[in-house]
């Protein structure tokens, strides 16, 4: 633990300094990504405003759902996405071997040495949107609910990092895994909308094998006091538990993949 505190912040610091060498490109990236998300949200807002609601969710409620989705995702992805999407290249080029000979967890090394401040644009968009949505929506605030919001966000970030890690880890055994991200992002897109608008089978997938309902819809529904299909009153505690559970499963899978690592050939 102490060793982690000595190494991990330093890794983040090194990565930041390396990134600063290309700060122009990074700032342009923040703007571009925020623009892109804002553009999609505008399209969704236009639908909701035109038709009044989607599955019983009005625009301010949708804004809470979308901002929760974006915030949870960017917090989790900052520790995982770019790093683990690259894992198949890292494996192919043999760089992963160099991590395996260090007395540090390769996961921690990868996650922190690539801690991605590229998500600043996402967060700059998500925070005001969420703040606005929370002032508009009818939320009965109390200290427990505030804690719940924070806890659910952490859980959302953990789900994101756990799934992205697991997909990346598959490259250790099967060499290629990047393509699986398109399946993840398919479900990820569904998580932007109220779960109740989807057919039962998709709802079931979204709360089990691909538990992305917990990263945005379930916590937003709990905050807005809406009924959650399939889960009912269990929804609130499950949204908090989903992140840690996904994390534990991902850790087990990561270990299994490390043991079955095939190397970069030769």
């Amino acid at each position: 633990m102490l060793a982690a505190l000595r190494v991990l912040p330093f890794l983040v610091q090194l990565h930041m300094r390396a990134t600063m060498e290309y700060r122009g490109a990074m700032i342009l990236g923040w703007i571009a990504m925020a623009f892109s998300y804002a553009s999609v949200y505008t399209a969704i807002a236009l639908i909701v405003l035109r038709f009044e609601n989607i599955g019983g969710w009005v625009w301010s409620e949708m804004a809470l759902l979308l901002s929760f989705h974006l915030l949870g995702y960017s917090l989790g992805a900052a520790f995982s996405f770019v790093q683990f999407r690259q894992l198949e290249d890292i494996v192919r080029l043999g760089t992963f071997d160099t991590l395996m000979v260090k007395p540090i967890s390769p996961w921690a090394y990868l996650a922190f040495s690539g801690f991605n401040i590229g998500y600043a644009g996402h967060i700059t968009l998500a925070l005001p949107l969420m703040t606005w949505a929370l002032t508009q929506a009818d939320v009965g605030w109390n200290p427990t609910l505030v804690l719940y919001l924070v806890g659910a966000l952490v859980s959302s970030a953990l789900i994101t990092a756990a799934i992205i890690t697991s997909i990346g880890a598959s490259a250790l055994v099967w060499v290629r895994s990047r393509h699986l991200y398109s399946i993840y992002f398919g479900f990820w897109e569904l998580a932007r909308y109220p779960l109740n608008i989807f057919p039962g089978i998709i709802q079931a997938i979204m709360v089990t094998v691909m538990p992305l309902a917990f990263m945005s819809y379930v916590p937003a529904a709990v905050l807005l006091d809406k009924e959650v299909p399939l889960l009912g009153p269990a929804a609130a505690p499950l949204a908090l538990a989903a992140g840690p559970i996904a994390t534990i499963l991902a850790m087990l899978y990561w270990r299994w993949c490390i043991r079955n690592y095939q190397g970069a050939g030769g």
């Binding site: 639908i47 599955g55 398109s182 992002f185 398919g186 897109e189 569904l190 057919p199 998709i202």
Partner: peptide, 19 residues
């Protein structure tokens, strides 16, 4: 994977319009 990803995406769009 791109087949599945695309399939899910179209499902999502249709679900929105049905809703």
């Amino acid at each position: 994977s791109s087949f599945f990803g695309q399939l899910i995406q179209v499902f999502a769009r249709i679900a929105i319009w049905m809703a």
